[in-house]
Amino acid sequence: MTAEPALCAIVPPYVLDRLAEDGHEPAARSLALDAVHRTARLTAAPPRPGSDRLDRVIGDAEHTERLPGRTVRREGQGPVDDQSVNHAYDGLGATYALFADVYGRRSIDDEGLRLDATVHYGVHYDNAFWDGQQMVFGDGDGEVFGDFTACIDVIGHELAHGVTQFTAGLEYRGQPGALNESVSDVFGSLVKQYALRQDAADADWLIGAGLLAPGVQGVALRSMKAPGTAYDDPRLGKDPQPAHLRDYVRTARDNGGVHINSGIPNHAFYLLATALGGPAWERAGRIWYDALTGRRLPSDAGFTAFARATVAAARARYPEPSVADTVTAAWAQVGVSTT
C-alpha cells in the first residue's frame, strides 16, 4: 500500500500559528512556505531509482526557496566547513543504519532510494520536512528555534514519514494522522538511541532536544516519557499533548490534532520499551516496525486498530506470551483497548 507523497513537518502547526499571531514574521513566512509545498506535492515526480547501498546527496538552497539547491556533498565525500551540511549527511546515514542494520530495510522505500537533503532553505525558516522525495531543513530564526539539522531524532522523524508513506500510508488526519506522527517520533527516537547505543532506560525520550533557542522555556518539542511537559513558554504556550485516551483533544486545527494526540501512542511505546528493557530498537521497535510494514494495517487505522496490529506482531515474532501481554498492558495504561 502506497500513499501519495506527504509533507510532514516537525514543528506542530499550532505553534507556528501562535507565533505568527503574535507578529513573529519568520513563523508567518514558514507557514506560507509550508502551504506552497503542500500544493506542489500533488504534482511531484515519482521517486528516483534506488541502489543496494547507502547513497546521500546534500544540497544547499543558499537561503532561497529553490530545491534541491547546489550540491555540496555526495556519498563518500569527507566533511565540509558547513556544519549544517555535515549534520544532515550524518543524520541521513544514522537513519539508514537503523532501518538497514536492525530491520533489514533497503533505505526509506526498501528499494534503495537515494537520500537527498537540502539545507539552508529559505530565510529563518522554522521547520524541517519530508516532501515525499527528499528532506528539507531550515536554519530556524535563532529566537525560538535553532538549526533543524542539529537534532538527529528530527532527521529520523522526518525520514520515518517516508517509511510510512511507502508502507501503511496512514492518512494525515485524526487518529491515523496522530499514528503517522507517533510512528515518526518512535523511529526518530530509535535513530538517536541506536546511534548512541542507549538502552531504553538511559534514553531521554525527547523529540527535538536542543532545538529550542536559548531563553525558550522548554527542553524539546515533545516528550514520549511525559507527554505535555516538553515546553511551557509565553510565546509557544504549554505543550498540549495528552498521555491518555481520556484526555484526547478534539480539534479542527493541526489536521485534527495529529501533533497533539500522537502523545498517546508515543507514551504507549515508551511504556512498552521500558517494560521490556534493553535496547528499545530490538523487541519494542521490531514490533512497531512489523505492525507498520505488515501490509494488514489500513490507511485509516485508528489507535485500537494499530494497537491490535502490534499485539498480533508481538505474537507472530515472539513465541513467549509475556511479550504480547506486555504490549497489551502498555496500551491499557494509555486507555487503548486491544480487544
Rank of each mutant, 00 (worst) to 15 (best):
Met1Arg: 13
Thr2His: 15
Thr2Lys: 14
Ala6Cys: 14
Pro12Asn: 03
Pro13Asn: 06
Pro13Met: 09
Leu16Lys: 08
Leu19Ile: 07
Glu21Gly: 14
Pro26Asp: 01
Pro26Arg: 04
Ser30Phe: 06
Asp34Phe: 11
Leu42Thr: 15
Ala45Asp: 14
Pro47Ile: 12
Pro49Leu: 04
Gly50His: 02
Asp52Gln: 11
Arg53Thr: 15
Val57Phe: 12
Gly59Ser: 08
Ala61Trp: 08
Glu65Pro: 09
Pro68Glu: 10
Thr71Leu: 15
Gln77Ile: 11
Gly78Phe: 15
Pro79Cys: 14
Pro79His: 14
Val80Glu: 10
Tyr89Asp: 13
Leu92Phe: 12
Leu92Tyr: 08
Gly93Cys: 07
Gly93Ala: 14
Thr95Met: 12
Thr95Asp: 03
Ala97Ile: 05
Ala100Lys: 13
Ala100Val: 06
Ala100Glu: 13
Asp101Glu: 15
Asp101Pro: 07
Tyr103Lys: 01
Arg106Phe: 10
Ser107Tyr: 08
Glu111Tyr: 09
Glu111Trp: 05
Gly112Val: 01
Thr118Tyr: 04
Val119Met: 09
His120Lys: 06
His124Gly: 06
Gly132Ile: 02
Gln133Met: 13
Gly138Ala: 02
Phe145Thr: 00
Phe145Tyr: 10
Asp147Leu: 04
Thr149Pro: 00
Thr149His: 10
Gly156Leu: 04
His157Ile: 02
His161Thr: 00
His161Tyr: 04
Thr164Trp: 12
Ala168Val: 00
Arg173Trp: 13
Gly174Met: 00
Pro176Trp: 10
Ala178Val: 08
Ser182Trp: 10
Phe187Ala: 07
Gly188Met: 07
Ser189Lys: 12
Leu190Met: 05
Ala195Phe: 13
Asp199Ala: 06
Ala203Asn: 11
Leu206Val: 09
Gly208Gln: 11
Leu211Tyr: 01
Leu211Pro: 05
Arg222Trp: 09
Ser223Thr: 00
Gly228Val: 03
Thr229Gln: 09
Ala230Arg: 07
Asp233Glu: 03
Leu236Ser: 00
Lys238Arg: 15
Pro240Gln: 03
Pro242Trp: 05
Ala243Glu: 11
Ala243Ser: 15
Asp247His: 10
Asn255Val: 01
Ile260His: 05
Asn261Tyr: 02
Ile264Trp: 05
Pro265Met: 01
Phe269Val: 05
Leu272Pro: 04
Ala273Ser: 05
Thr274Lys: 01
Leu276Trp: 00
Glu282Met: 10
Gly285Thr: 08
Tyr289Met: 10
Arg296Met: 09
Ala301His: 09
Phe306Pro: 04
Ala307Ile: 07
Ala312Tyr: 11
Ala313His: 05
Arg317His: 01
Pro319Cys: 03
Glu320Thr: 11
Ser322Phe: 13
Ala324Ser: 00
Ala324Glu: 03
Ala330Asp: 04
Gln333Tyr: 11
Thr338Cys: 08
